[in-house]
Write a protein that binds this DNA or RNA. Structure first.
Lengths: 128, 128, 128, 128
DNA sequence: GTGGTCTAGACCACA
DNA sequence: GTGGTCTAGACCACA
């Protein structure tokens, strides 16, 4: 489920962050569900526990999980209100990538198709 | 025109690449226009010439500028055809960002507005 | 193993690229084998680490090695498929050199002997 | 006839050398034929006379043309005997390029086709 | 004047 | 320990 590309130029801990974020967004990991412990996951993926720790800390800072001392890490139910700051950043990134894509010839129809596709994946829990 | 954030975790040379790409895409820098020389720009921005070199080389590899030894660096007119590979990568990035944006509550209307805005900036010279 | 000609007009980093490419093509450096670290090689060859970096980055861009941050550089197993563009360039170079060689009197037999010799070196692992 | 690519990473004077060599090898420029004067060619190509001068000097050094003071530059009839040193260099280059081409999947049939094609172009004067 | 290469050396991120 | 970035500064090739 958590496949890492050790050769990627993207640091391992960032890959972990991305993957786990995706699982949360797609509702595979449900709110308040417990994540595997740092040690367990480290063993499973045969990578350094410090790397897992770093990923979990990042996810916590971004509001995707919360930590209960002595218990473990759990999926945070995101409040879809107070995310203005984060959304501003994403908007900026979105503009950058869309600019280059359009400049290089990606058509509006193709972009719309991507949006639809993404909506279907992410929106899953909204239909529940 | 080229404001750098020296505190940013994004390397200076990458910031430069982004900024110059944008200027080219928005047709502020026109095809075959000469870029400031490595040394000149280094002085202006008070950063090391090697850093400018690195940025210019990256832009050259990506097909945004071309270099004439002993003359300088110039804006490349992009051939909007054989960019499939690049577009694939951009599509993947697009999905990632859109996923997070939608998950955090960005509405479809807002996304469409961003697309429109970007189209106006990038497409400028195509409507003239 | 990696002898450099400091007097050559060919930049040191390009000499390095050529030498390492050859070692990879001749299967002396096997897939996933680790290359000497930037610093180690710099010391061994008594040249600047930045120069090694430049060579390694070029090899990475050409698909001959891959980098794992914090770990090192490793030999990439080349996918012998989607190299059309590169092969076109090589064909052009081939024509240029063959033209001059034939013009200056190199016989077809001699050329065929070169091909055979090269095939034996490069193809080594394919016959195993 | 002499089209230059000012954007090429290959220096202009080297491009000139290549082009003129080719014309000589293909017998378009015949033995003892006079080349355009430095000034004439400079005007025609709208490049600096020094650049032409440099190219002519290089061609002279390589034995492709000879200079008669006060008269001009003329095509040298190449003696296809004493070119051993040059042929050694070409052979080395040939090996390098063939190695990479074969490694990346160029077939023997394709290489043979290139040889044939080149033979037809260069060999023209040998059939006269 | 313009880009290209290289050195010596520092500091940071990642594992 | 390993790669990545950056500075200060020198010297060369090309136009």
């Amino acid at each position: 489920m958590l496949e890492l590309d050790l050769r990627s130029r993207l640091p391992i801990y960032e890959q972990l962050v991305e993957k786990i974020k995706t699982l949360i967004m797609e509702d595979v990991l449900k709110a308040d569900e417990q994540l595997p412990s740092v040690r367990t996951l480290a063993q499973e993926l045969t990578i350094n526990p410090n790397t897992i720790q770093k990923a979990y800390k990042a996810l916590e800072r971004e509001g995707y999980i919360y930590t209960v001392k002595g218990k473990g890490n759990f999926v945070q139910k995101i409040e879809k209100g107070d995310q203005r700051e984060k959304l501003m950043l994403l908007k900026t990134e979105l503009k950058k990538i869309l600019s280059e894509a359009i400049y290089l010839g990606m058509g509006k129809d193709e972009i719309l198709k991507v949006i639809e596709e993404v909506e279907n994946n992410v929106g899953r829990d909204q239909n529940d």
